[in-house]
Design a protein around this nucleic acid. Structure first.
Lengths: 169, 169
DNA sequence: AAAAATTATGTGACTTGTCACGTAAAAGTT
DNA sequence: AACTTTTACGTGACAAGTCACATAATTTTT
């Protein structure tokens, strides 16, 4: 069983080189590393979770908002936001009221305290975005976004559509 | 409080358009959608988790391997793999032995049954990769990987390095 | 040779996410 | 108007991930 055509280090290295070109794995790892960066930065500015930061940011930019609206803006699931809201209400960052326009909907709004927390935290988070802007040109961002759009279209297509040419060998 | 400069739908739409160009959010959403696609495909082929599939694939391609080697190949944390191994041993997919070369290390190896499960599952997973290859040219993949490399370098840089120009207004 | 530092792996606690479901409200259809 | 379908959100269960830590083994330093 220890009798292989390549010694271990070469097999492992070869496998790694191969996986370096696996877009699925690469995107996953990059995204998770990005999450860790965000968490560290949020930690350095206070104690907000990523979801809490996103809620504050959306409300500051476009509030008041419903859970569904924020989920759409953030491209996340409403369940995550629903879970964060009571915590943020207790911390005094936001208030929630029943929307008069649609009584199923909760309307979430920044408090003065929430606005302060947003302002303080946005120092480090906008610095993050500014630093990224110095890394990629406008054109490179456009290219990147375009590629991501197409990747997303691929992974979100119905299952059979992705395999359809398998039926045509 | 309902008195705003833009009506709600316009504010929400504007906020969404803005976030469409946020690389952090876009990568996260694309990666998570990719994960859902993988999970669905694995479900359609059997009942492997993503980590289990990755372990089988690595072992089939380059096994036997240690936990750390697989974590490096997959760009994931050893903890995830450590957790999956006992489950996979119980399911009969892999065996684990203490490495003679380093008695701290566990050497993980495919069983015949594991090889079968790999083979059956790889039908749908390689179809997935083939379908993605029809979506992006070789050159586009190179561009994509290059952009991801640079993004990863950015998010993995030490915190102060990313904010350094903040001290130079 | 002994001590100190580093490394491999397993484990627990926690975060971020998905999915399924339930309830109530709204929208659509008959 | 009554019925049916869809939608908003809250909640529970679970998956994939990170981090901290512990233990044992190995490597490096003294």
């Amino acid at each position: 069983m220890t009798n292989h055509t390549k010694p271990r280090p070469d097999r492992v290295k070869a496998r790694q080189l191969e996986q370096n070109r696996n877009l699925f794995g690469r995107l996953s790892a990059a995204s998770l590393a990005s999450r860790v960066q965000a968490q560290r930065m949020l930690k350095s500015a206070g104690d907000l979770s990523i979801t809490e930061w996103r809620v504050l940011w959306d409300l500051a930019e476009a509030g008041p908002l419903t859970v569904t609206e924020m989920a759409a803006i953030q491209r996340t699931d409403h369940a995550l936001i629903s879970r964060a809201i009571p915590v943020m209400v207790r911390k005094g960052y936001v208030t929630t009221t029943i929307s008069q326009a649609d009584r199923r909907a909760s309307l979430i709004e920044l408090t003065d305290h929430g606005r302060e927390v947003f302002t303080r935290t946005s120092v480090v988070m906008s610095a993050r975005r500014a630093a990224l802007s110095r890394t990629f040109s406008e054109e490179e961002v456009n290219t990147f976004i375009g590629l991501i759009d197409r990747f997303e279209a691929f992974v979100e297509a119905p299952l059979t559509e992705n395999l359809k040419t398998e039926a045509t060998p």
